[in-house]
Write a protein that binds this DNA or RNA. Structure first.
Lengths: 333, 333
DNA sequence: ATGAAAGCGCTAACAT
DNA sequence: ATGTTAGCGCTTTCAT
């Protein structure tokens, strides 16, 4: 199995060039004799041939492989991003290598180095901090495309409009409710530009609606996992002020954790709460509550990402930053 | 940036061997002079050096890379599997390449070929059919490890005990309910060994509990996506027999679709239903219903998978099939 | 303690 | 229409 071009050529006693020409489908073009072509085809049909990309890559200084670094696959948003990006890459003849950095800067640096060593042609990255982007710049120069988080590095960027997203979502929630609602916003890692922008939009909407500070509670956590949501919610419930009229979370994992906490403490999820979260999911249908989710358009994001990367790979001018619109999904009757 | 060993050697006017020895940390061992070592270190500190894995791989006939083919990342079970497997691979100094075949045999064949061309050292695969496993056998011989689905190929296998899982889950459901419950089982693609085994366990439990055929409805679909669950549930609801006492689904996506359909048709999810599904998820907490989920032990599976693969890579005898136990999670008060 | 050279499998440029 | 060759960057073996 796995004959090389050299082997085929010598065993058939013809030259490497001829074999290559046939294998790459250029037999016609170079007028290889039909008999020769048939001999080669017969041989490969019997013994098989798989082009050795490692050798090809070494020669061409190009691997036709792209890297993608995301925080984790257990976050459905990133899983969808990875899945859709992979499809597009495959259609473009590229292989995508996905790795998770778990929001750890050291792991992220390690992955950047790994991808560099493995000679990926370009890197998509959801950066965990500004420092790792510097690392990308030295390692990949202009072959980096930043996703999701705007750390204000001078690198091409593809993301959603988080500030507007925060404002729209908050606006929907406030419009759905009459009176003076009690609002709780559970915030995972406000250091992240994504979250900070959502918070900014949230505050803007509060102002537009003339909501008083006293109605609002912001609870912050250092990261964005379901445990964080759980902790924050337990913390709120421990204060004994019951459940809020409006519960908003900064991401789906935080939402999951928060609702789990409510369920655990109160044995049920009060329908009186109006819920809001960033990122959407089918399972939100399980909740009887009035609920709004800010859904990112992954298809747009992925298309922009690959288009931008193609430009970079072809040494065209760096693409403009792409900011995708979001959609507010109303998951209730 | 990205100097090669040759470049460093010639620019410093020392031999390649010396540079290599220093770079690979064997300076001491080979008694390279401290001055020489320092010169090299200074040089790489300034200009950087990243080992070229492509060249290394070509020479060593080994890429330190493994492939993983799964149906899709949007299924949380496979996302978790990929995420956990990647961590373990990284700890073992290996890079994992994840690709999704979307349960399409042609895509799966294509991916196997791609991975072969890219010279991955070994392949983890969740097979979509028996034929693609044959393809693995010719392409990867004894470097294939099958995950999740037992197509009875003679290849090492790591999976959960689905039959027992079906029996345990059904037993729990039947124990939780008194009287003569009306049972609906929504089944995505029963061609898959996983699903077939779960169904077998289900039937065994019915027999053990003396449940009559007339109480049970099995609805089948050709695949395992949320749309399938939705269709099946809509089909059931259209019959006008209300909601069942027990609703069981063959996988999480089917469950998601089914409950969405209920929500859409009835505007709410009746608490009278006792629910059961294979695969667990935090968001199941959102449901007020009595609910049991058969949780697979991803950590065990992943550990067994990597251990098995290590054996294969080291030309040790093929590992025994590994069948992991599952756990029934009770998500209700 | 350091150096030189072959070769992994491919591609592209240059022969005939 | 087909053949020959250099070289991508690394590792390994054999010389000093």
């Amino acid at each position: 199995m796995a004959k090389t071009v050299d082997e085929i050529a010598s065993e058939l006693e013809i030259s490497i060039t001829t074999v290559r020409l046939v294998l790459s489908g250029k037999a016609r073009q170079y007028r290889i004799s039909e008999r020769t072509e048939k001999r080669i085809r017969d041989y490969t049909d019997e013994h098989g041939y798989a082009l050795n990309y490692t050798a090809r890559s070494l020669k061409l200084q190009r691997t036709d492989t792209l890297g993608l670094i995301i925080p984790r696959l257990s976050n459905p948003f990133f899983a969808a991003l990875a899945e859709k990006l992979e499809i597009r890459c495959r259609n473009a003849g590229l292989q995508l290598m996905v790795s998770c950095c778990h929001n750890d800067p050291d792991t992220q640096i390690h992955l950047i180095d790994t991808f560099k060593q493995r000679n990926v042609d370009g890197l998509f990255i959801v950066p965990s901090d500004k420092n790792s982007l510097k690392h990308c710049q030295t390692r990949f120069e202009n072959r980096t495309l930043v996703l999701d988080r705007d750390f204000k590095a001078k690198l091409p960027l593809v993301m959603s409009n988080n500030e507007s997203s925060g404002e729209q979502l908050t606006h929907k929630l406030l419009t759905a409710i009459t009176g003076k609602p009690n609002i709780v916003f559970l915030i995972g890692n406000p250091q992240l530009p994504t979250i900070a922008a959502r918070l900014k939009g949230f505050k803007q909407a509060l102002k537009n609606h003339g909501i008083k500070r006293s109605q609002v509670t912001l609870l912050e956590s250092p990261s964005n996992r379901d445990e964080d949501g759980k902790q924050l919610m337990l913390q709120w419930l421990a204060e004994g002020r019951g459940v809020p009229d409006i519960l908003l979370t900064s991401s789906l994992p935080v939402f999951e954790g928060a609702l789990s906490a409510v369920r655990q403490q109160l044995r049920q999820i009060p329908e009186s709460m109006t819920l809001g979260t960033f990122d959407d999911h089918t399972m939100l249908d399980f909740l009887p509550n009035r609920l709004y989710a800010a859904r990112q358009n992954e298809d747009d994001l992925v298309q922009a990402a690959l288009t931008g990367m193609s430009a970079l790979l072809n040494d065209q001018p760096a693409p403009e930053d792409y900011i995708a619109d979001i959609e507010i999904v109303e998951r209730w009757e």
